[in-house]
């Protein structure tokens, strides 16, 4: 199995070998999270920004468990429903993490967690001006993705399906159109339920995948992290290798010449 993948993912001028980004939420324990992230091979990991519990200081800190020399933190704005809240969260994240990378999400609705693209575009414009490297979670809408690129976002992250749904890539055609429309990396964010979903996204030619629940919610998150690692690499290799065209009828693999009968 090829261990080294010569093609790198470049986001905001930084090079990454792994095309899988993973979240840090929903794990049964910090130990399980650390092990899953390690096996996933991810180099970029998402975190959320929340108030410190000042009354109960007994809870352990996430950063006690994460090697910041090894991983690039990608703080998110999960739970923000307005551009202003998302901008405020990004500013806090930069101060806490001392990095400009942010996963910008502005939600429109609690039930679907679909993005509010109007607020997203507003927030993205402000944050890009303030020097952030903005990776926006967005709908699988090529027009919105183009606008996000024009604003100066470092990547676009269309959803494959609703967050945590595990429905896979619901509209592969839109994802392909997005790839034809923008030059920045296209990262499928949300919706991946199992390894084949990840492979399909990568075979379409996506530059990377971001997932959390697909790994953390599996019966065995450590094993699923390894499956996702392999699937993302397999999908990428298959994309680079160039698949055969689909045909309705058979084409023999063995020579016709020399058949004994």
């Amino acid at each position: 199995m090829p261990q080294q993948n010569p093609d790198k993912l470049v986001i905001g001028g930084r090079e990454f070998t792994s095309r899988l980004m993973v979240g840090t939420g929903k794990y049964a324990s910090m130990e399980q999270m650390v092990r899953a992230i390690e096996i996933s091979g991810a180099e970029i990991i998402t975190v959320a920004v929340r108030r410190v519990n000042i009354s109960d200081r007994s809870k352990e800190s996430l950063l006690d468990h994460i090697d910041l020399k090894k991983y690039t933190l990608l703080p998110n704005t999960a739970g923000c429903y307005t551009a202003d809240d998302a901008i405020r969260t990004c500013r806090l994240a930069r101060e806490a993490g001392l990095s400009d990378f942010v996963k910008l999400e502005v939600l429109g609705d609690e039930k679907t967690l679909f993005p509010d693209n109007e607020e997203l575009l507003k927030a993205a414009a402000v944050l890009v001006k303030e020097g952030f490297t903005v990776l926006p979670y967005t709908s699988d809408d090529p027009i919105v993705c183009k606008k996000l690129e024009d604003i100066g976002c470092a990547a676009v992250m269309p959803l494959g399906a609703p967050i945590g749904s595990g429905l896979g890539i619901r509209n592969p055609y839109n994802i392909r159109i997005i790839m034809d429309t923008v030059k920045v990396p296209v990262i499928v964010d949300a919706g991946v339920g199992t390894a084949s979903d990840a492979a399909i996204a990568m075979e379409l030619g996506c530059d990377g995948i971001l997932m959390n629940t697909g790994i953390a919610g599996a019966r065995n998150p450590i094993a699923m992290a390894e499956a996702m690692n392999l699937a993302v690499r397999a999908g990428r290799l298959a994309y680079l290798a160039g698949r055969i065209p689909k045909k309705l009828y058979a084409t023999a693999s063995s020579p016709i010449e020399g058949i004994i009968a």
Binding site: G23, T24, G25, K26, Y27, M33, T46, V47, A48, V49, R50, R51, V52, I54, S61, L62, L63, L73, P75, N76, A78, L92, A93, A96, G97, I163, G164, A190, L210, M211, N212, T213, A216
Partner: peptide, 10 residues
Amino acid sequence: LEIVHFVGGG
């Protein structure tokens, strides 16, 4: 004062 930190998230 708002005092925030990083927690697990996706």
